[in-house]
Computed example of a mutant assay.
Amino acid sequence: MSEEKVAHARSGWPMLAVTLLLGVVCVVAIVAGAMMLPPDEAPMTTTVHALGVVLLVVGIVALCVGPVLLLMGFFTIQPNQARVLILFGNYKGTVHDEGFHWANPFYSRSAGSTYDFQSGKAVPKSTKISLRARTYNGEHLKVNDKNGNPIEIADVVVWRVSDTAKAIFDVDDYNTYVHTQSETALRHVATTYAYDSDDGEITLRSNIEEVSAALKDELSVRLEKAGVIIDDARLTHLAYAPEIAQAMLRRQQAEAVIAAREKIVQGAVSMVDMALTELAAKHVVDLDDERRAAMVSNLMVVLCGDSEAQPVLNTGTLYQ
């Protein structure tokens, strides 16, 4: 695997002054050489004429080659940006210093090319790399959770390049690599956990922080080869697949009703026990087992019923 080497480029302002001075000298040489030439259609007979031709040719060649070649060495680097220096295929280092710089004009401006599947053409890879944080919004994926239930899931990943050498030389296209590995990691994490469970285990729906941490760790391992680090990874969408969504909704509703009924029954039993205990303690009424059972039945109906209880007046006795 490649390893980033830090390089430093000289300031571009002194070289800009040298380039301008060289351009002025070339123009002066061209003008001086033109003034030394003989009049039109006159033969060149003196040494001055020959010197004028030399100055004219040298000035034109120097103007076309010198300043143009020097101008190719200028480049700028913005904050959180870097440039990889490649000289005839050899990696020389990475410049992180922001500002206006000048380096060897023969440093490559592209690091090979990568194939773009959308356009079907080879696209050159720039030697300038942004080190800023980037966000990848993943598409909705249909996968099976740990229990085999089809679910829809999507994520958002915040990432940035930390090692420019790995990003340029160890993978073909680090942007595509990040997108592909993000989808693969999300599918793996989705199949590791269940969508929902009553067993107290980590689930996709109830343990968002734990699942996000697992997704971040998975991505960090996969993207280390490309010199990319993950700042954050979160789930942005989680739902059952449409074909089972209605059935799962009914299941959740049934579980909610059962849980609510359980709470109601527990509360009713506690209230009935309290009522019987208070009646016996204060000697309000003495109840035998049959009457106690009837009171418990009536109280449970009143406390656990969905609708209001309708009182019935008994004109007789419990035994008639």
Rank of each mutant, 00 (worst) to 15 (best):
259 A>D: 11
141 L>T: 11
168 I>L: 02
238 L>F: 09
7 A>C: 08
161 V>W: 00
17 A>W: 13
14 P>W: 10
118 Q>L: 12
95 V>G: 07
314 N>M: 06
288 D>C: 01
265 V>R: 12
7 A>W: 09
305 G>D: 03
143 V>D: 01
275 A>S: 11
274 M>S: 15
43 P>C: 04
90 N>E: 15
126 S>D: 10
280 A>R: 14
42 A>T: 11
174 Y>F: 10
12 G>L: 03
32 A>D: 08
240 Y>N: 02
131 L>W: 02
52 G>C: 05
151 I>D: 00
12 G>D: 04
136 Y>V: 15
319 Y>D: 15
4 E>V: 05
127 T>L: 00
29 A>D: 10
218 E>S: 12
314 N>E: 13
42 A>C: 01
100 F>Q: 05
113 S>F: 06
10 R>E: 09
234 R>D: 10
108 S>N: 11
59 G>C: 04
194 A>V: 02
206 S>K: 15
140 H>F: 08
242 P>T: 00
230 I>L: 02
20 L>D: 05
267 G>K: 02
140 H>I: 13
212 S>W: 07
276 L>N: 06
82 A>E: 08
123 V>G: 06
27 V>K: 08
50 A>N: 07
314 N>W: 08
58 V>D: 12
202 I>E: 01
121 K>W: 04
19 T>Y: 07
241 A>T: 07
40 D>S: 14
317 T>P: 01
15 M>F: 14
110 S>H: 09
319 Y>W: 15
270 S>A: 15
247 A>M: 09
15 M>Q: 00
158 V>H: 06
87 L>G: 03
217 D>S: 13
289 D>F: 08
113 S>K: 12
201 E>M: 11
115 Y>F: 15
105 P>K: 01
314 N>Q: 00
242 P>R: 03
109 R>S: 10
45 T>L: 13
184 T>G: 00
236 T>I: 02
75 F>Y: 11
140 H>P: 02
